[in-house]
Design a protein around this nucleic acid. Structure first.
Lengths: 343, 343
DNA sequence: AGCGCTTGCGAAAGCGCTTACGTAGCCTAG
DNA sequence: CTAGGCTACGTAAGCGCTTTCGCAAGCGCT
């Protein structure tokens, strides 16, 4: 690791301005107790010199960290990279640093990452991605975060309602319901679900929505094949293969996220099964390529970038009554991957 | 910003082990001057207590930062998110923190971000994405980084040969050439280029490769329409529209990255132009969805994740002779978006 | 026995900031 | 004209670590 050489310090700015360190610090922090003209002069000099405060010293002294820790399942998954983009936008505006880490969809690893961020004293923690149905994870994470919040930490989660902290939350169940209703409306009755990683609350919620919609139309949950693989393209492929093999009469596949839907489409193409003529396919999230697939993907749009922005906004605003929720809208995007059920 | 409360400090570990701060620090850093048994005891106690050193204090005292600053053009662009994924993988293994920021493909902003990272004393800086043909940017960035390296900073860049620092570099020109050769082999003669943002070295290099290949086949550069928009899906759409309008006889479009290729395909679909029957399309990068488009995209594969890993590896290894280069392979992935030129 | 050397450890000095706390100078009120 | 209260600023005490320096103990050698 490098040892950065002598750098511009606050003392340099103070000296050049002919004031003490304390005054310079106050002026740059915009704190009062400094006359307008002196403050302006200090700020001017600081800007001229290109002074940037050493964040390590600042944090150590002030006990306040300007970095936000962002935990995502996997940054090279479009769902998460769009969220990260939103977080970074706001962080940029607010002059915060963003430190990013992977949880790899593993509750244990995620817990470790969270604890590590806390131990590191980042000022804000944002956790993106589905929660886990694992009760141990839930309670441990909840305890760790509660303690963190108790000491002044700020936390927001995206896409999970667990952990007892501020949340930006899509209505996964309603979205699932909308997909079910859409397919029912097209006359589909033999509908299968390509479900993501078991143990994710998002999977459970979306699936519940789908099944609720189908139940209302008289299709019992027992008659809906649900194949659990994982929330990736390859998981989608595998699920589609299994559905085709075990339930050949299926006319529509609901993938619980777009990555899986892409895999499903790919499997169908490989088998020469025309979409939507012989099989309708829907996804969930509306990642940016969804509209560019062929056929373009019918899916539920979630405003990922906005969700990232909102989460950081939430965390930045003083939390009066603590577990706040910001619902995010969702929109059914009907495109070309769905059509009337074949006769 | 929060003020984290009282936390486990090194002093607590030291006290519990019955040693001084200095000894505890040495033991945990693996430095010698501590007997094996004492070191083991300290490490054991530290682990039991779940002690994590305060990185701010550590950096301030040691002058050595364990964070890597990653500059990308845009994290929600698959090319960059895959690179970021690679960087994060290695960082995870090495226990480094990754701080990410956007340059927005703007040389001025990128320079500011770089300076900011330097001022913040991050230990390692990795800059991903095309360089700029802008000479002012080049010289200022080069100077800033040289000074940074002079003080012990480590730098690696990905996908650009400029800046005089260690680089992980695909052969963009050869890749461009391969695409040209591939299309020529299919009998195409009226080939247009959908080029990305003017002012990016990557654009210039890939374009040069394409033109070189065509020139060898007797097609003068003047006969190859090159439309500059930008390196995004919408840029690709716009470029395609312009090509179709101004050069209706075109039988193949070379998009200089996959994002643009996706836009080109979308524009062609909107116009009802069949690919590859009436128009062949190629991209560059092989982002993960490229294989899942319909038609699947012929493109030049770059190992983005590996590139991210390699860059951080490079930065971590002591640089003997300074400007090192790691070439990354590229592979022409022939898929369904290209076919014989229509008669 | 005395010398220098190594080894293992503690004391203490910072790293560059923030922020009590103290102290001038000035204003207003009695 | 003085007591009390502001305001504007300086002094100095840390934040939690790393690292230099010094010291004591143990070693082999003459």
């Amino acid at each position: 690791m490098p040892r950065p050489g002598p750098r511009l310090r606050l003392a340099d700015v103070a000296e050049r301005a002919g004031v003490s360190l304390a005054t310079a610090s106050r002026a740059l922090a915009g704190r009062d107790g400094v006359s307008q003209e002196v403050a302006d002069r200090i700020r001017q000099i600081s800007a001229d010199l290109g002074y940037v405060a050493n964040p390590y010293a600042r944090t150590l002294a002030g006990g306040t960290s300007a970095t936000v820790g962002l935990v995502v399942h996997q940054v090279d998954d479009p769902y998460f990279s769009e969220i990260a983009g939103g977080v970074i936008q706001v962080a940029d505006e607010q002059n915060l640093l963003v430190q990013i880490c992977h949880s790899g969809r593993d509750p244990g690893h995620e817990l470790r990452q969270i604890r590590h961020l806390i131990a590191q004293q980042v000022g804000i923690i944002i956790i993106a991605g589905s929660g886990y149905t694992d009760a141990v994870f839930e309670s441990e994470a909840r305890a760790a975060l509660a303690a963190y919040i108790g000491t002044g930490g700020r936390v927001a989660v995206i896409g999970r309602h667990s952990l007892g902290v501020d949340a930006v939350l899509p209505d996964n169940e309603a979205g699932g319901k909308a997909l079910g209703v859409h397919l029912l409306g097209l006359g589909h009755r033999r509908i299968a679900v390509a479900a993501g990683t078991a143990g994710l609350t998002t999977v459970a919620d979306r699936q519940a929505g789908v099944l609720a919609a189908l139940a209302k139309a008289g299709i019992a949950a027992g008659d809906v094949p649900v194949v659990h693989t994982d929330f990736t393209r390859d998981g989608g492929r595998a699920a589609a293969e299994r559905i085709l093999a075990d339930h050949p009469a299926t006319t529509a596949i609901i993938a619980l996220n777009d990555a899986m839907a892409i895999g499903v489409l790919s499997a169908l193409r490989a088998r020469g099964i025309p979409v939507p003529d012989r099989m309708s396919v829907v996804g969930f999230d509306d990642v940016s390529v969804a509209a560019d697939l062929a056929p373009s993907l019918t899916t539920v749009r979630l405003p990922m970038t906005t969700m990232g922005r909102t989460a950081l906004d939430l965390a930045l605003k003083p939390a009066a009554a603590r577990p706040r929720r910001r619902a995010t809208g969702h929109t059914l995007m009907v495109r070309d991957s769905t059509g009337p059920a074949p006769a």
